[in-house]
Structure formats: structure tokens, C-alpha cells
Write a protein that binds this DNA or RNA. Structure first.
Lengths: 202, 202
DNA sequence: GTCTATACGATGATAGAC
DNA sequence: GTCTATCATCGTATAGAC
């Protein structure tokens, strides 16, 4: 059940979260697993592969979680609420992994970077599609879909950077707060820019 | 005007932003300044001091910027609008430094860490005070002040992680969008949690 | 102020015994 | 699968000449 490979992965998640990917050495990971550093290489061919493994699992689970959340919702507003709620809950429940996945992308080689960013883009597109549907149907006020999706996602993702499990609020409470905040923001006006851009560079 | 010490600082900002603090070596910084790495130590006693210098300047300028913005505003709502606007503009204009200041705190020793975090807390308290005044005066709906301030600040700070100066929108346009989003969120209801917490741990 | 040269530890990774 | 032993490299930082 709990093989050494899984132990290594979990210890790496803890250390990457706490100290950062570059500041964590293979020796430290090995120490956390009570084995010698050479043994790590039996399970993972290198440090970056370990990081990639963590990120891929996280992104896959994140996407699955969103799909499951959306499956239970009907209509644009309910879907958006479900999407935000699932996103926040996932990011708070799996705080360490999501933090790593969004802050250690620079640790990846160009090829591996592309692998993860592609998944992230797929995920973002689901939100952008929902926003677009909501605007078209009049449920949400207008605005730039791309900017809106970034704002919403980074807002909720950032929750994982300050959330403390032992704090005053539960995961569900914070999810509810964020869900309402986002829906209010989407419904309110003023999101579209009045007049032509002052100094845009399309 | 542009002494070598300032050049080193600017090159370090570029590299810390691009590759991260731990992934950047003194040699690389020296190469970017067209000097040898030993010469860096004439200006800075070590790598961490360089990081600290960058962060202190950034935090000091950030606070000054907020104070200047608030000086021109009267009333709670206008003040909150000014605060958000200044915060966003500063973070987008000085994208690299603010990104470093908020993502490389782990590169600091405990003492230096405390130095920067104290400044950050002072800054956050200004927002929390505004939120509190707004709620007390009835301008804003209720809600947990701490959570609200984190949400607002991380939302706007995160703008610096996706903003591209050559993109479709200007700094001012994005600031306006965020300003309205935050004010709408603060005015809208639902921020207070109905009933007693489900599983809070005060 | 900048250079060359170097000390010295830590790092990622490999070879080969068990 | 895990170990010991080792390698080559690179990191920060210092000493001392110019």
C-alpha cells in the first residue's frame, strides 16, 4: 500500500512545499525516508522527474475533481458556483501539491513545462467557457473573459498560500465565501471597459 | 547615477524573477553585469543580503505608494478604491520586484524574514482598517476582515503573475477592473457566514 | 573596485557490492 | 531494493595582487 516510491513522493511534497524545489536536496528527501540518497534513484531517475510526477498527479486530480463537480450542476450559474467551490476545496485540501504545481514550474525543462502548462490551459478553458456562456445568456455582466478567468482562478488559488488547516475557518466555509464573492463579481457591472483602450497594444 | 551596485541589484531582480532566487547563482549575476563574481562581494556581503535589499526597497516603496494614494482620497469607499488601485498599479509596474518579494521569502534567514513580514503586516493592516471602517459605517457588507483582506490583496498581487506589459490591456485598465471587482465584492452580501461555523476551531 | 586564484562544502548522479 | 563509495561539477565565499 505505502511503497517506498509513494513515501519518497510524499516526503518530497512536504519539503518542496516548505523549502522550495531548488532549495531541497536529494539527501534531505532520502533522510526523510530513512534511506540513503542513492536509493532514491532506483525509484526516480532524477530530481526533476520527481517534481514532474507530483505535478502531473496534481493536475490530473484537479481536472477530475472539476469534472465531477460540474457533473452535479445544471445551468450556468450553478455550474460556475460548483466550479469555484471545487477549485477552492481542492486547493485547500491539497494545499502543498497545488502550491508546488503553481509555483515551481520553473524547475521543469521546456518539454516538461509544456506538458503541465497544457493541462493547466485545458483547465482554465473550462472556466473561460462558463464565463462566456454566462455573459452570452445575460447571467453575468460583460467583461474580458481571459482577464476574468485569471482573476477568479488566481484569487482562489492564492487561498492555498495563506490557508492554515488549524485556522478559524473550515475549508467549506472559505469555499462558500469565495463562491459568493466570485458570483457577485461576475454579476456586477463595470467589468467591461468603457470606451476604447487608453494604451492597449492588441 | 547608475553605479555598479545598482546594476547588480537590477540584474539580480531580472534573474530572481526569471529563474528564482535559489536557481540563480552569483556567477550568473556577475555575468549579467560584465564583471567577475568575486567583485559582487565588494558591493554585497552575500547573496541573501542582495535579496534582502531588493525586498526592503520594494516594501518601502509599496508602503509609500499606498500612503500617497490614500492622501488624495476622502471617505471610506474612495479610500478603498484608491488603495486597491494603487496596490494593483504598483504590482504591475514593478512586477518583477513584487513577485520576488512575495515568492522568495523562504530565501531569508529567520531574522530577515521577520523584518520583511513585519512590513507586509503593517501594509495589510491598513487594508484591514479600511474594511473595518467600511463595515462599521455600513458602506460594506459584513464578513471576516482578515479573510477579506487576504482575498483582496492576493487577488491583486496575483495579477503580477500573469500580467504581460505588452498584452491587450494597460496597467490602468486592469487596475480599474480590479478596483470595481473588489468594491462590488465588499458591498455585496453573503460575506458573513450564516449561523455558527460548521467545524471552526477558534 | 575589479581582478585571478583558490578553498571548501554540497550537490546531482553513477558504479558496483550485497 | 538498498547499501557504500565515489565522481565531476558547481555553489558561496575569501585572499591577495593590481
Amino acid at each position: 500500500m505505502s511503497s517506498m516510491k509513494e513515501t519518497i513522493k510524499q516526503v518530497a511534497i512536504d519539503l518542496f512545499f516548505q523549502k522550495g524545489y531548488f532549495a531541497t536536496s536529494i539527501s534531505e528527501i532520502a533522510r526523510g525516508c530513512d534511506i540513503r540518497k542513492a536509493s532514491i534513484y532506483y525509484h526516480y531517475s532524477g530530481k526533476e522527474v520527481l517534481l514532474l510526477d507530483i505535478m502531473q498527479t496534481t493536475m490530473q486530480d484537479l481536472l477530475s475533481s472539476l469534472q465531477a463537480g460540474l457533473a452535479r450542476a445544471a445551468g450556468v450559474e450553478a455550474s460556475m458556483r460548483a466550479a469555484v467551490r471545487t477549485h477552492v476545496v481542492f486547493h485547500l485540501r491539497r494545499q502543498k501539491e497545488t502550491f508546488i504545481a503553481s509555483s515551481e514550474l520553473r524547475g521543469l525543462s521546456p518539454e516538461n513545462f509544456k506538458l503541465i502548462v497544457t493541462k493547466r490551459d485545458d483547465y482554465e478553458r473550462i472556466f473561460q467557457s462558463l464565463i462566456g456562456q454566462g455573459i452570452d445568456g445575460g447571467t453575468f455582466a460583460g467583461g474580458d473573459i481571459r482577464i476574468l478567468s485569471y482573476a477568479i482562478l488566481t484569487l482562489c488559488t492564492a487561498g492555498a498560500s495563506w490557508f492554515r488547516p488549524e485556522g478559524r475557518f473550515s475549508v467549506e466555509q472559505i469555499a462558500e465565501i469565495y463562491e459568493n464573492f466570485v458570483i457577485n463579481g461576475l454579476k456586477a457591472a463595470q467589468w467591461s471597459c468603457a470606451g476604447p483602450p487608453a494604451r492597449a497594444s492588441y
